[in-house]
Simulated scan of single mutants.
Amino acid sequence: MRGRNLSFNFDGAPVLQNVDVDLRWGTVTAIAGPNGAGKSTLIEILAGVRRAVAGTVVRAAEVALVVQTVSAPDALPLTVQEVVLMGTWGATADASVKIDARERRIRVAQALDRVQLADLAAAPFGNLSGGQRQRVLLAQGIARRARIFLLDEPAAGLDAQSRERTRAILAAEASRGAAVACVSHDEDSIADATSVIRLEGGFRVG
Results as ranks from 00 to 15, higher is better:
51 R>Y: 09
18 N>C: 05
76 L>N: 06
29 T>Q: 14
27 T>A: 13
68 Q>M: 07
23 L>Y: 12
21 V>L: 01
38 G>W: 10
58 V>L: 13
40 S>G: 09
76 L>C: 03
28 V>T: 14
17 Q>C: 12
16 L>K: 00
30 A>K: 04
55 G>Q: 09
40 S>V: 02
48 G>P: 11
52 A>C: 08
24 R>I: 06
43 I>C: 10
64 A>L: 00
74 D>M: 13
56 T>D: 14
38 G>K: 00
34 P>I: 07
50 R>I: 06
78 L>C: 12
27 T>S: 15
45 I>E: 05
71 S>N: 13
30 A>Y: 10
50 R>F: 06
29 T>N: 00
23 L>H: 10
39 K>Q: 04
66 V>M: 05
70 V>A: 03
69 T>H: 15
58 V>Y: 05
36 G>M: 09
30 A>H: 05
55 G>K: 08
24 R>G: 07
49 V>I: 14
24 R>E: 15
33 G>A: 07
42 L>C: 09
23 L>C: 02
53 V>C: 10
33 G>T: 08
47 A>Q: 01
39 K>Y: 00
40 S>A: 02
59 R>Y: 05
45 I>H: 09
76 L>M: 14
72 A>T: 14
32 A>P: 00
69 T>R: 15
66 V>N: 02
77 P>H: 04
72 A>Y: 08
57 V>G: 10
66 V>Y: 00
48 G>D: 10
33 G>D: 07
15 V>Q: 11
49 V>A: 13
71 S>R: 15
50 R>V: 01
60 A>M: 12
34 P>V: 04
64 A>K: 00
